[in-house]
């Protein structure tokens, strides 16, 4: 039960994007379409799970004073792996995410979980924590991507909901990212208040 809670907290209650406001750059930069948001979210989830796993395994081998650089190396390694694998097998996603793939390294969520959770907990709960937070992040990006794609071009995951000509293009462009996220956060705040 406890592990289940550990896993689900990332979705709404401690959602890294909507509630903790972390990882804003990829959140805004890659959510022009739902599929890009989902791809980015899953790539980040992979990095989170793997870096949490490794960090919790090696936490006792790393002296305290150099733990941050060591964690950064671990994270950067997995980011580069994701980058190369994506380039080989998902070239179109790789192209549309572009610069934001190497920038997973500086996503505060990843380093934050390694430092705040994995360096203090055992392997099992660290992996579950990574998966929960990562999927929460992916969930947030998919929601934002779907909203922007729907309002901007009348589609969700490339499935037409209403004719593209009625779309408000601004939501696919930069300003729409900020505005859509603003309203979604307002809604989530309201939901969380009701639950509490």
């Amino acid at each position: 039960m406890n592990q289940w809670k550990n896993f689900t907290k990332g979705f709404i209650k401690e959602n890294p994007v909507f509630v903790l406001l972390l990882g804003m750059c990829p959140t805004l930069g890659t959510t022009g379409t739902a599929i890009n948001g989902l791809g980015m979210g899953l790539a980040t989830t992979f990095v989170l799970v793997m870096s949490n796993l490794v960090v919790s395994l090696i936490k006792n081998l790393i002296p305290d004073k150099v733990r941050i650089p060591a964690f950064i190396v671990v994270i950067a390694t997995f980011v580069t792996i994701v980058e190369m694998v994506m380039q080989a097998y998902l070239p179109s996603l790789y192209e549309s995410l572009g610069l934001f793939i190497p920038l997973i390294v500086v996503n505060c969520i990843v380093l934050g979980r390694a430092e705040a959770f994995a360096s203090k907990n055992n392997v099992k709960s660290s992996v579950i924590d990574g998966a929960g937070i990562g999927l929460g992040f992916a969930f947030a990006l998919t929601i934002l991507g779907s909203v922007r794609e729907l309002l901007g071009s009348g589609k969700v995951f490339d499935i037409t909901i209403y004719p593209e000509n009625y779309g408000m293009l601004i939501f696919i462009l930069a300003p729409g990212a900020f505005i859509a996220l603003g309203y979604i956060i307002a809604v989530i705040n309201r939901l969380n208040k009701k639950n509490a």
Binding site: P63, D64, K65, V66
Partner: peptide, 17 residues
């Protein structure tokens, strides 16, 4: 036990990672 933050340990662990 956690490794101490001695210069040697830091160097070795960082280098190893």
């Amino acid at each position: 036990a956690k490794l101490e933050s001695s210069f040697k340990n830091m160097l070795v662990s960082l280098f190893g990672v």
